[in-house]
Amino acid sequence: MSRKNLSGIVQQKGTQHVVMRTLLFLTLGVFCLYYLIPLIVMIATSLKSLEEIRAGSLLSLPQKVTFDAWTKAWSSACVGVRCDGLQPFFWNSVAMVVPAVTISTILGALNGYALTKWRFPGADIIFALILFGAFIPFQVILLPMARTLGVLGLAGTIPGLILVHVIYGLAFTTLFFRNFFIGVSSGIIQAAQIDGAGFFGIFFRIVLPMSLPAIVVTVIWQFTQIWNDFLFGIAFTVGDSNPVTVALNNVVNTSTGVKEYNVDMAAAIIAALPTLAVYVIAGAYFVRGLSAGAVKG
């Protein structure tokens, strides 16, 4: 819509304009390259053989494309003493991130809905307290959380890690949904009340379908945070229950044998692919969601 509106705007013409435009695009091009080079190097290196890496320069493109490094990273690289590649840890991450994102998003939506549409005394204070949770540094909660997980019998397990991420994520998800719902007309809730729907009826049948943009933003945010998390992963899981980020670290920082840069690069890309995919698939919604307040429903 905005593209269509802009195309008709009268623009300046003349030599000066052309010079400025050229400069502008030149600058943009340089920045673009600056951001892309690390990715190019990673992909190129992961497709080279070890000999080629040793012989050639960092920036050169692969002479002979080979996927050996990818296969190794996925299924046979050594993580600690176990040599099954990243594969089992990748599925650990999936098994952790899916429930953690789903639960924290639903609870955040419920919180935001209750805090804006079913106002109760002290709602603002409770929101302020929840919001405060978004500013607590990760390190501060490590010890109390470890103790809590121990008491709950969840120490060192994936469910334990899910619990940590759900609790830590609630502050952000509540904030996202609260700010989305504050822009939703209360008349809609009142109309639904008169129509005979209750708290959960209105939430699931009216409010949740309306909040697709907020859901997408929250899911992307939570997915990226939880998938990329390293600290909680290394602190609250052990060995076989490690998420992929911790496993990646173990692959790269292995102290024995030759440094296999191609395998490291492939492993890093594998570990980063899911977040990349989520951005590509839902990215359009992300931008739309951030400006959701400005768009009429």
Partner: peptide
Amino acid sequence: AMVFQSYALYPTKTVRNNITFGMVS
């Protein structure tokens, strides 16, 4: 039954489902 100034229609529902929502509830 109430008619609101902002209409307060359910944006994700069709006209038919807007009208039937009260009966569904």
